[in-house]
């Protein structure tokens, strides 16, 4: 197992390196002088020069690139242009809220998606299956802000069950949980649509396998056959989708946070865009890409846990 982990870990390093290089490049395709873009054309020459110096733009591109790489490796993402705090302290201040939201949403997505998908597979081509397929197709068509607005209108504005604006009261866990419900249902329902579909098709494949017939012949209970023999073998594609969905989930959580006015990375991005804070955007991209690569790594590691044959390869 340890060798497998080490091998997978080693494989992510070049990806992270290229990701960092891309982000560096991307942040420098701004047409014209970034200092001029940030300060506007009314800025005087001294202010422009000072900013260029602070951003290190007066050095050669290669020197900028090398120091950027070195800083990134050390976890130093630079200073935010708009707040003068470090990019990492800006991000880490709101990251827990976003992580809290994505974990809650993943919980909703898996707890709802897996059983519904299994049931749809068992009732193949019957009414329950058609309804599930139609609903999941509709579910994965929702842009996160559209579903968010509809949920907000129904449950916060009309029924008044939830606050229209999520307030995070750190000291009061109940209020905090209450504020988390609607946003995490919004994110979780969309994820459940994906999970349902892949669970259904993966289970359909497994149900026709010989070992399932053997299990039936052995006289095992239907519940045991479906949930322990069937689902366990159908798990790899499900884990893949949960892992791959993470990238989409990040985008959706940004939209969800904006709609529900929740503190988190989404509002940080919005602020960075409005104040043209390119170092903050650059830092956010690196942090997100790092998370995506790490989640993919974890997905690979989970394969090894589910299916011992994967490790051997």
């Amino acid at each position: 197992m340890l060798r497998y982990v080490a091998k997978r870990l080693l494989f992510t390093l070049p990806i992270l390196f290229v990701v960092a290089t891309c982000v560096f490049q991307l942040a420098r395709v701004v047409p014209g002088d970034p200092a001029l873009v940030i300060l506007g054309d009314q800025a005087n020459a001294e202010a422009l020069q000072a900013l260029r110096q602070r951003m290190g733009l007066d050095r050669s591109l290669m020197a900028q690139y090398l120091s950027f790489l070195w800083d990134t490796v050390r976890g130093d993402l630079g200073l935010s242009l708009s707040s003068n705090r470090t990019v990492w302290s800006e991000i880490s201040a709101v990251l827990p809220f976003t992580i809290e939201l994505t974990i809650a949403a993943t919980f909703v997505g898996v707890v709802l998606g897996v059983p519904v998908g299994v049931l749809a597979a068992l009732r193949r081509n019957r009414v329950a299956d058609y309804v599930t397929r139609l609903l999941s197709l509709a579910g994965l068509s929702f842009p996160a802000f559209v579903s968010g607005i509809l949920l907000l209108l129904a449950f916060a504005v009309q029924l008044r069950w939830f606050p229209v604006v999520s307030r995070i009261v750190i000291n009061d866990p109940l209020t905090r949980l209450h504020n988390l419900v609607l946003p995490s249902i919004n994110l979780g329902l969309i994820m459940a649509a994906y999970v349902t579909r892949v669970t259904r098709s993966s289970m359909l494949g497994v149900l026709t396998e010989d070992y399932m017939r053997t299990a039936r012949a052995k006289g095992l209970s239907r519940r045991r056959i479906v949930w322990s023999h069937g689902l366990r073998n159908a798990l790899i594609p499900i884990v893949t989708v949960v892992g791959l969905y993470f990238g989409t989930m990040i985008g959706n959580s940004v939209l969800t946070e904006i709609v529900f006015n929740r503190p988190g990375v989404g509002k940080l991005i919005l602020g960075a865009l409005q104040s043209r804070d390119y170092t903050l955007l650059q830092g956010l991209m690196i942090v997100f890409a790092f998370f995506v690569v790490m989640v993919n790594l974890c997905t690979d590691l989970v394969y090894g846990l589910i299916d011992p044959r994967v490790k051997a390869r």
Binding site: I15, V19, C22, V30, G247, G251, V254, M285, A289
Partner: peptide
């Protein structure tokens, strides 16, 4: 390998970053 790197960026955020940069 290049495609794997592109997939490491969340779609919406990559689009957002590019549009923010080029207008």
């Amino acid at each position: 390998g290049a495609m794997d790197v592109m997939l490491a960026f969340p779609t919406l955020l990559l689009g957002l970053m590019i549009v923010a940069m080029i207008g």
